[in-house]
Amino acid sequence: MSSKADPPPSYEEALKHPKLKKYPFQTRHGGALPPPPPYSPSTVARVSPPGYRDQRGVYPQAGMCPCPCVPPSVMPIPTLSAGLPASSPGEMDDFFSNQWESTSVRHAFIRKVYLILTVQLAFTFAVVGVFTFVDPVKQFVIRYPAIYWASFAVFLLVYCILICCKGPRRRFPLNLVLLGIFTVALSYMAGSVSSYYETKAVIIAMGITAIVCVAVTVFCFQTKVDFTSCGGLLSIAAVLLMIIGVVTAIVLSFHYVPWLHMLYAAIGAVVYTLFLVYNTQLLVGNRELAISPEEYIYGALSLYVDIVHIFLFILQVSGAATE
C-alpha cells in the first residue's frame, strides 16, 4: 500500500514503465486498457462498497455490511417472531388489560343481576308464604279473584314495557320502578295460585324449585355445551306449550282426562327449565350470544320470570299428587 509521501504514478507513467507490476494500469495482450473514470466523490460512492467513502477512508463503518448487493438499511434481521405482526410491549399490556377489564366487568354484572334476583325471589316467596299460612289472606284471595286478573294485566303490561326499554342507562330509575311493580304483580299472582293448594304441596314445590335452580346454575357455569344457539328450538317449544295449554283448558272444562293437567304442568316445568339454562348462559357471556353488561335489569327479569314459572308448574304437579 502506498503512503501519502509516496503517491502512485500517473497513468502515463504506468504505460511507459510496464515493469511497475504492482499497479493495474498496464498493457495486457498487446492492447491498452481503457482510461479510468475521473475521480469524484459521486464516482467513489457508486463503485465503492458501503463504508468506503474514498481512497483516504479505507475503514468500513461499524455495523455495516461490506457486501455491495444488499444495503445495510434493508438487511433482514432474524427474530423469533418472524412471519408474525410486530407488537410492542405496550400493545401486549393493553391487550391483557382489556381482557382483564372485560372479565371484571362481566363478573360485576353477574353479581349485580343475582343481587337483584335475590331481592325479587325473597319478596315473592315471602308473599307466597303469607298467602299460604295466613288463613284470612288466603280466604280473601279466593273470595276476590278479580284482583288476580288485575295483577295478571299489570304483569303483562309492565313486562312488555321492560322488554322494549331494556338497556339504556338514562332510563335506569324508570326501569327500576317498573321492575318493582312487575315483582309485586307477579308475586301476587304466585301467592294467589298458592292459596288454592295445601301447605304441604307449596313447601314441596319451593324445595324442588330451589334444587332445580341451584343445579341449573352450577351446570351453566361448568358445562361447555352452548345452549344460546338453541333459541329457535326454545321458541318452538314455547309455542307448543301454549297450544298444549289451550287444549288442556278446553279438555278439562268438559272433565275429560283429569291427568292431562298434570302432564301439561310437567312439560311446562321442563320447558321453563330449558329457558332458565338459556338465560343463565346469556348472563355468563362466554357463549355465542351474551347479554350486554348494561342490561342487568333485563337479565334479572328473565331469570326471575323463569324461576317463578318453574315454581308454579311444579306446584301444579305436587298439588295434583297430594290430592
Rank of each mutant, 00 (worst) to 15 (best):
235 S>I: 10
235 S>L: 14
235 S>P: 07
236 I>W: 13
236 I>G: 14
239 V>L: 15
239 V>D: 08
240 L>W: 09
241 L>C: 08
245 G>K: 02
245 G>N: 04
246 V>Y: 10
247 V>C: 13
248 T>K: 03
248 T>M: 03
249 A>Y: 11
250 I>C: 14
250 I>D: 09
251 V>M: 08
252 L>P: 06
253 S>A: 14
254 F>D: 10
254 F>S: 14
255 H>M: 12
255 H>N: 15
256 Y>F: 15
256 Y>I: 15
258 P>N: 12
259 W>E: 13
260 L>Y: 13
264 Y>K: 13
264 Y>Q: 10
264 Y>R: 10
266 A>V: 11
268 G>N: 02
271 V>Y: 00
271 V>P: 01
272 Y>P: 05
272 Y>W: 14
273 T>W: 00
273 T>F: 03
273 T>N: 01
274 L>P: 00
274 L>T: 09
274 L>M: 13
275 F>S: 04
275 F>G: 03
276 L>R: 01
276 L>P: 00
280 T>K: 02
281 Q>H: 09
281 Q>K: 04
282 L>T: 05
286 N>Y: 11
286 N>W: 12
286 N>I: 09
287 R>Q: 11
287 R>Y: 13
288 E>Q: 12
289 L>G: 09
291 I>G: 06
291 I>F: 12
292 S>C: 07
293 P>V: 02
294 E>N: 13
295 E>D: 15
296 Y>T: 06
297 I>A: 03
299 G>M: 01
300 A>V: 05
301 L>R: 05
301 L>N: 09
302 S>F: 05
302 S>W: 03
302 S>H: 06
303 L>W: 03
304 Y>Q: 11
305 V>H: 11
305 V>E: 05
307 I>A: 01
307 I>Y: 00
308 V>Q: 00
310 I>G: 07
311 F>I: 05
311 F>S: 03
311 F>K: 00
312 L>Q: 05
312 L>M: 09
313 F>P: 04
314 I>K: 06
314 I>S: 12
314 I>L: 14
315 L>P: 00
315 L>I: 03
